[in-house]
């Protein structure tokens, strides 16, 4: 599904990702853990197409050179980024935004666009399932949302847009335990053999709820260790430094 080879990314001359390699197969859940400044968010940004990076290396997504595909087309082709800091867009109704987004993506996939009635039905069903209060959807997009509401909104969007590759960029940061549970359940409910996840996180606690297939430790722009989900517990105990030295 996703094949990253020798990826180098720098911003304003500063090298952040260094010969980064990662391969994700359909249905796999990969967690990337690392200290602040290790390049975690840069990885999410490069994959989703944010401008401003100088990039070398190759990234193939479903056999196509991802780096040549415009941002919106990546989204249409099924890449979803759950933002670390979802931005406020005043005046834009959340429901309306989501409907526009869904229909753009459906159109791209050759599906019929949903009318308002069908869309609202879908939203009702999904938000009930995720235990997310529907009423945030009638508010302006992310405006005045609490940290938890913003993240829940990302998860709800994810479940409605049904992406193929989900990138969660520190979705767990700043969440209380209840919100964390809702977010994790949202992710778990979407796991299936065709959908892959790349979970970027600083802390191990999210991985108590979402069991990844692989855990990678990112330090200084490079994966320094790869293991199974027990690696996360190890990290919690010894810290990132312990892992780097052990290597």
């Amino acid at each position: 599904m996703l094949d990253i080879k020798n990826l180098n990314a720098s911003i304003e001359g500063k090298k952040i990702l260094k010969n980064f390699n990662l391969n994700i197969k359909p249905g796999e859940v990969h967690a990337i853990m690392g200290p602040n400044g290790s390049g975690k968010s840069t990885l999410a940004n490069v994959l989703s197409g944010r401008k401003g990076y100088e990039i070398e290396g190759t990234v193939y997504y479903e056999g196509k050179n991802l780096l040549e595909i415009p941002i919106e087309e990546r989204a249409q082709k099924g890449i979803f980024l759950a933002f670390q800091y979802p931005i406020e867009i005043p005046g834009v109704n959340t429901n309306n935004f989501l409907k526009t987004s869904l229909n753009t993506i459906r159109k791209f996939r050759g599906l019929k666009e949903l009318d308002s009635l069908d869309f609202l039905k879908l939203v009702k069903e999904k938000s009930k399932k995720l235990k997310i209060e529907e009423k945030i959807l009638s508010r302006q997009l992310n405006v005045g949302f609490s940290g938890g509401e913003k993240k829940k909104n990302e998860i709800l969007q994810m479940s409605i847009l049904e992406p193929k590759l989900v990138i969660l960029d520190e979705t767990d940061s700043g969440l209380d335990i209840d919100a964390l549970r809702i977010v994790s359940e949202g992710v778990n409910s979407l796991r299936d053999k065709n959908r892959s996840f790349l979970i970027i996180t600083h802390y191990q606690r999210l991985l108590n709820y979402i069991k990844p297939d692989f855990v990678h430790v990112l330090v200084n722009g490079k994966i320094v260790k790869t293991g199974f989900s027990d690696l996360a517990q190890e990290l919690e105990k010894d810290g990132y430094e312990g892992v780097s030295i052990a290597k």
């Binding site: 989703s48 249409q76 834009v92 987004s101 753009t104």
Partner: peptide, 22 residues
Amino acid sequence: FYCNQRGLNQEEAVSLIVNGFC
């Protein structure tokens, strides 16, 4: 960027944001 990441192209994104503003 947020709008693009949700599948909207630049013009659709601008139109959406401006319509929200108005």
